[in-house]
Amino acid sequence: MSGPLLLSVRGLGVRYRAEGQSVEALTGIDLDLHARERIAIIGESGSGKSTFGLALAGLLPRGSEVSGSIAWPGLGAAPKPGKDIGIVFQDPGSSLNPVLTVGEQVAEVCRTHLGMGWRRSYARAVELLDRVRLPSPEGIVRAYPHQLSGGQRQRVAIAMAIAGRPRLLIADEATSAIDTVVQAEIVGLIRELCSADALALLFITHDIALASGLVDRIAVFRAARMVEIGPAEEVVSAPSSPYTAALIDAHLGLDAA
């Protein structure tokens, strides 16, 4: 069951400015998120899903206009990215530092945010790389990001995001390049963290089937708005918006012709 209120968003709007164009990326978003609660954000490409994650983490690019409010009653203060919020960015390569080994990067999070010594941080890095199911983590800690496959890099990014024991995990297409076997294991790990460490989850995905097996609630975005939100099973079995219904119909299962 979910715990106390962690986060409360009211009337959130975001506008980007780029090359003389002004882009409305989000408008009128309301959302409450509780500790232990798992929410998926699904929706059209360009509908504002990543923008929502960046806005919560306070990581929007300079020059973007934000309206409405984001309150953190569960924290009492503004959240620190890395410590209170762990984020897996959509493009995993871009969040990793190319000149540090993956072990150094994961250990650095433990050192900065958990105040561990270097030796303990490094040991915890190995343990975390093992938890995200990377093969032979003792070897992988010494690898540089470019020496890993795309799916391996995504798993390093997940390990980094959970390393500081955050209260909220924002995972933006975090398993999009991972095969179904490892994907199922990562989903199991996330579920376990949510219940054991009271972690709340914002799971941004294009995969409605994956979402439906992991989260409590599904929110559907379209053209900068939240067009639907409800319990996962309800949204999947009886979608209230035609757009959601179309998403479900277009799901490519193995039994589809």
Binding site: D179, T180, V181, Q183, A184, R191, S195, D207, I208, A209, L210, S212, G213, A232, E233, E234, V236, S237, A238, I248, H251, G253, L254
Partner: peptide, 21 residues
């Protein structure tokens, strides 16, 4: 066989109840 078995399926209400955890 492993890849096929792990394909996520849509969890609808009509499917046998699943206990999360």
């Amino acid at each position: 066989r492993r890849l096929v078995a792990a394909v996520p399926r849509l969890h609808r209400r009509t499917e046998p109840a699943r206990i999360g955890g």
